[in-house]
Design a binder for these strands. Sequence first.
DNA 1: CCGTTGCTTCGGGCGGGGCCGAAGCGTCGA
DNA 2: TCGACGCTTCGGCCCCGCCCGAAGCAACGG
Lengths: 225, 225
Amino acid sequence: MTAPQMAEIAALVGDPARANILSTLFDGRALTATELSYAARVTPQTASGHLAKMTQAGLLTVLKQGRHRYYRLATPLVAQMLESIMAVAASAPPRYRPRTAQEDRLRVARTCYDHFAGKLGVSIADALCERKHVILSDDGGEVTEAGLAFLKELGATFPAQTRRPFCKHCLDWTERRFHLSGVVGAAITSRCFDLGWVRRERNPRALQITPKGQEGFRRSFGFSI
Amino acid sequence: MTAPQMAEIAALVGDPARANILSTLFDGRALTATELSYAARVTPQTASGHLAKMTQAGLLTVLKQGRHRYYRLATPLVAQMLESIMAVAASAPPRYRPRTAQEDRLRVARTCYDHFAGKLGVSIADALCERKHVILSDDGGEVTEAGLAFLKELGATFPAQTRRPFCKHCLDWTERRFHLSGVVGAAITSRCFDLGWVRRERNPRALQITPKGQEGFRRSFGFSI
DNA sequence: CCGTTGCTTCGGGCGGGGCCGAAGCGTCGA
DNA sequence: TCGACGCTTCGGCCCCGCCCGAAGCAACGG
């Protein structure tokens, strides 16, 4: 049976402190053990234990750099797993959840692994579909010629060839609609950072849209946010 | 933060007994509480507690019928979550796992929610792609005209319209390749059962391919299994 | 009715695992 | 070389939650 192994992985995610850590690493960045202990609201030695377990189980990888140890999600597969658990968690309980300002900011714009999510991510996907720059089928997507031209004009660049899916959609768990992931999603996101259209907030997953970004998104994508 | 809710869901999956139950329900069938207690290897009263928790959390739904209570996965979203956890569990630990005969049978042919998976599922997907009956993009799929004709000839029927994705792929966690899901995957699977090409083993997730099936798959799809 | 069967609730035992204080180990900077 | 810092290991406390025995409830069948 495969159930025991599944239980083992799920149990790792099932602890609040560890869930906090994973959720903090969700956008793909690498953070030090101490930073993560702070995010998890436990002492460093406790966090250390959690990190060791998750690393051994293959959920995280660690990079030693000087006296720091940078932890990050081991593979995109792990991120996808977290996303799907969040999707169930968000949909399942019709239970009470007093929305916090924090959460509202996440709802507007955040990163999901390495691409935009939230209202911003969905708006971008909508805009590109609207103009036929991207054709989203029920389960994937492709970029049209016009779309490639648009990306070039925007200044978004991406590796010529890679094994990673080129254009992919990703179910947004707050908007309950699709945003873009894959190489294209990452390229657009990275470009917007470079243009200074978005900035990270103190909470590393939440994004702030700059005035320049407001203008840029309106002019290039045709939506206000 | 959404982490606590994620932890709650994951913790439910993280208990071995509950993981057994979920894994048993993974193919989408509905089973009674007692059957599930047997699958989980715990007493009925213990299982009852687990089932209540999972139902309350929205992972399961229950159908009362006489003095029986049939439990099943609440939504396909839950099945997808389990699949993605299994994918991580299968890939993550380079740890020792003495393959059992049981597992080997699962590797050959099983159902995943309501469509084929394992070697059989992947072979079917391959055959349909090979003949251009289905075009699989990196993240979705569509059925060609020729493909529709083929399905008709096979006798596979499906609802004219439904909100469910028509043709979808699903990463197979044993083969590490794609098999078909969505309406098309379910239709093919259902038809093969009707034709007597496959049969359920005692372990409800594992499938047995009948001699008639061997012949049928060879003639209709062009592969031997 | 009464017994059987399917399922649940209740109560208490017990083990696993999260948590922190203290201490140890390696790296960096002066 | 010495202290500061980041991180880990160790040991012990304590609590959560899994588990089962016993009993209660509801749905059949005779």
